[in-house]
Design a protein around this nucleic acid. Structure first.
Lengths: 333, 333
DNA sequence: CTGAAAGCGCTTACAG
DNA sequence: CTGAAAGCGCTTACAG
């Protein structure tokens, strides 16, 4: 083991093994049988490489091969289970396919998203999965200009295939569940409130659609002021509810776990009135089932989505293809 | 924008701009002023590069420069806030220093950890931060053989500097808080139970030390069967408590949010007896404060730890240096 | 069966 | 002030 000196190269090994660099290279990347090098030479080279702590210089190797095995992912945040699971499973799937996954977190910042995409391409990523990107088309354009495949996850774009949750259907089911429980537990049937998110966002819009459709199918009208999509932060959810002190039964559709935090905070301030409130959340969190009043959560099918996304890699599809993946509804109590 | 053809290189740009590749290179990496190229040439080259959607081939550039800017991190899981935050902040800090962060998740598997380290080194990472590694010394050895700096985070090793939470002090404080609340709320003073983790793990051992020290300082004896460190999963925590149906007051020290899930599950099965139980958890989760009976949580100082870790980069220190970073105690109710 | 040589895309010391 | 040339560490078509 040479100390923090220069790294061992195939030339060093060639010298030590009394072989040519070509032979060493062939041994080290497993093509020696094809090149009919002697088993003895191969064994010697491998032993020496091991002794020297050799690790191939992938930059050089890939440069020569004119390909990287890098597949990149950008992800907005690690602040909830959803994106954490996406990153984790992405790595697993990529590795299973012999690729090198690089995921970078872009803080929900459109410019950072773009810079991260550019950086990944500089590192020769062969494919880029943009998760929850604010402006996926800008990234797709840049990628295609660089000859790199890109795929949208979680949020749809128009230029490349997008894999997203079936937000509308998930929201429909969740809304039905909350309505059912309001009727069942509280003997009440009225319009729920929709809390969290932004109407301009695709996912929020789709969920609101499902929310409204469910009410429509139940013959319940939703007053405009029941739609409280004032952002994603816990604080904004708490703020938007601050003045709401129900003196009877009430139900809430919570859009995302981040907003859920704010809703639960509000819920606790209600004292005994809290027992008259039911809510459910679009998103999943392991502690969700322990929250009083929470009747269910929607879990997005991360492996389903990623499996779909990976199936596009290397198979360019019609631009703008949109794949909807169903969600799973967890019912509590 | 050329379609998914070969990528634009400096030679392409040189031809288009009627300049030499050397000049293009100088313009593109900002050394053109130093080389006294004309402003006009620089402007032309930059315009053309822009038009062509040029992105430097970092593999080639770094190969030539004989350095990467890559700093790698291995992380066990993204299944709790702690590691998610670590990954996120690591990226931020690395970028702020002009480095390219690559984090890979190793599923708490010692072999995967090692393979990931090897892979990162193959990609020429200049420094590797091993977070929560099962066998940090094995990784350190491999890194040092390859001439790569490594640093341990969260779990200590003996060969390179380690930055870890002051688990003992944090556990001491949390134990005191739970004991106080048991006395205050329930008028009871007795030994808490320690649930979750493995005694063989450094962090669990240190926390148990703090737990025992606090009891000692309060003059409370801890019976052996009150130490229930049967693993990290929610199920094992729930299982270990399954037979415990307190008929009076009780208190629990929960080691990690993962175990907390199991404890809360158990707690809910107690019915009215639940009111006689207080617990606290070493780890932080935003929903923690909403759990009935939870009196406090310990939040590890992620930015403090990472700041320290980064301060070691490029400054080789005495092997085995151990830096303890204090935790923050959140009190609920 | 095996090695010398060219070349991946870049950077930079060097010579003019 | 500027460009030709060498070389980073590897791979592979090619010639023997």
């Amino acid at each position: 083991m040479n100390k923090n000196k220069k790294k061992t190269t195939i030339y060093d090994i060639a010298a030590l093994a009394d072989a040519s660099p070509s032979a060493v290279s062939a041994v080290l990347n497993g093509t020696w049988e094809k090149r009919r090098l002697s088993r003895k030479l191969a064994a010697r080279v491998m032993r020496i490489a091991e002794e020297q702590g050799y690790a191939v210089n992938v930059q050089a190797s890939l440069l020569r091969r004119e390909k990287s095995n890098i597949v990149g992912m950008i992800v907005p945040k690690y602040d909830n289970r959803y994106f954490g699971e996406i990153a984790e499973q992405f790595e697993e799937l990529a590795r299973a396919r012999g690729m090198f996954p690089v995921v970078t977190c872009t803080q929900r910042d459109p410019d950072l998203e773009f810079e991260a995409a550019r950086e990944l391409i500089s590192y020769q990523a062969e494919c880029l999965i943009s998760t929850g990107a604010t402006d996926p088309d800008r990234i797709s354009d840049f990628c295609s200009a660089a000859g790199v495949q890109s795929i949208n996850l979680d949020l749809p774009g128009t230029k490349v295939p997008s894999v997203i949750s079936d937000n509308r259907a998930g929201a429909y089911d969740l809304t039905m569940l909350i309505l059912d429980r309001c009727l069942q537990d509280l003997g009440w049937s009225g319009s729920l409130r929709f809390v969290g998110g932004r109407l301009a966002d695709h996912n929020t819009a789709a969920r609101l659609e499902g929310f409204l459709a469910a009410h429509r199918d139940r013959g319940i009208e939703v007053p405009d002021h029941h739609v409280l999509a004032a952002g994603y932060s816990a604080d904004s959810a708490a703020r938007v509810l601050a003045d709401f002190r129900p003196d009877g039964p009430a139900g809430i559709f919570v859009n995302s776990t981040i907003s859920l935090e704010g809703v639960v905070r509000w819920h606790r301030t209600l004292g005994t009135r809290a027992a008259q409130v039911r809510y459910g959340c679009f998103d999943w969190d392991p502690f969700g089932s322990f929250l009083p009043g929470n009747v269910g959560m929607v879990e997005q099918d991360v492996s389903g989505m990623l499996g779909k996304a990976f199936s596009f890699i290397g198979h360019p599809e019609t631009p703008g293809t949109q794949v909807l993946v169903p969600c799973r509804l967890h019912r509590f109590d």
